[in-house]
Amino acid sequence: MNTVDLLFYFFATLSVGGGLLMVISRHPVSAAMFMIISLVSVAALFVLLESFFLAILQVLVYAGAVMVLFLFIIMLLDVGPEGGKVSRVKMLSGLASCLSVGILVILLLQFSGIGDASLSNWKAIQSTESVTGDSLVFSTSLKNFGYGLFTKYMLPLQVAGFLLLAAMVGVIVLSKKSTPDLDA
């Protein structure tokens, strides 16, 4: 057990535990807090995987923006704790999903070769500063990331931009106060 292992197990526990607590917590604000813990530990896992940019993006986008938005909405709508009983259908489907998740995890553990020493040699990252061509090599450099985005994935990037624009227009339309002449 070395440092990296320790960190992995720590953050893995934190992320899954946070997620689980999020799912079962009664009050939405508590749920949001557990969700933040989970998201930040996922960012830490990204750091362990040496993709620092994505780790920071994870914190920036999820913890910094998305969850603040969630909290804002929770407070705006003043959503209280969930009262009442979970319906039977929900219980049944919950049990079923638990069961299926459990089975799949067991299968995964059985067949994925965990603990197989031959799989555990992580290849070192070559520090290739200048990248050309279509074969994108994994590196910690931001430049490679940008290069990939603007060459091979140019179209998806444009589409993502368009998606953001569409979402923005949609959100504005949705949240605008409806004027009477528009409704008529």
Binding site: I36, F52, F53, I56, L57, V59, L60, A63, G64, A65, V68, L71, F72, M75, T140, S141, L142
Partner: peptide
Amino acid sequence: EVGILFILAVSSLGVYGIV
């Protein structure tokens, strides 16, 4: 390498204290 992003990301967490 992503220093400024780190600052933006972490400082944006400060709002949780206030909220």
